[in-house]
């Protein structure tokens, strides 16, 4: 004997089918292709990061032109410090070779960022100078060559 199906059941089933298929279509259109490739995020956003340009070239790029500074630096205590620590980002300068594209810091405050007396600095980590007493009024670079600090200029 055929089972009685109330007329609202097929109608409701149709309505459900339409809503569910609409949801699936919308979901397909709204979710980006790479979403979920590795996890619940858009994998393509990692490629967006790869296109960002660098500003710091790394010291090997500096030494391609400035071989003399590499040799000079190697002889003294600043040998371990990369060029861009003091001279700032060098990618632009490494392609243009313009002096305006690189920093040439001078001044007691700049050297003091590392060498000023501070209780938090380990005594053997860096040589510390009391800037309130040491050759007041003079610029550090008047006596010290920053690439070779212990070869005194005078």
């Amino acid at each position: 004997m055929k089972r009685y199906i109330p007329p609202q059941i097929p109608r409701l089933a149709l309505a459900f089918a339409i809503v569910i298929s609409l949801f699936l279509v919308l979901r397909h259109l709204l979710i980006p292709d790479t979403f979920g490739k590795y996890g619940p995020y858009r994998a393509a956003s990692m490629d967006d990061y790869s296109t960002i340009e660098i500003h710091y070239a790394g010291q090997q790029a500096c030494f391609e032109c400035h071989q003399d500074i590499e040799d000079l630096k190697a002889l003294d205590v600043h040998s371990g410090i990369h060029c861009e620590t003091c001279h700032g980002p060098g990618q632009k300068h490494s392609t243009s070779a313009e002096a305006a594209d690189i920093l040439k810091p001078t001044g007691r405050e700049f050297c003091g960022n590392c060498h000023m007396m501070n209780a938090a600095r380990q005594k053997d980590a860096v040589l510390q100078v009391d800037l309130t007493k040491h050759n007041i009024g003079k610029n550090c670079t008047e006596c010290h060559n920053p690439h070779q600090p212990w070869e005194m200029k005078k």
Partner: peptide, 21 residues
């Protein structure tokens, strides 16, 4: 981002490139 754009080019992150010590 741990300088993700630099890591992809086999360069060290900027902060580690410049750390003097």
């Amino acid at each position: 981002t741990l300088c993700y754009h630099r890591l992809k080019k086999n360069l060290a992150p900027a902060c580690m490139e410049v750390c003097p010590t």
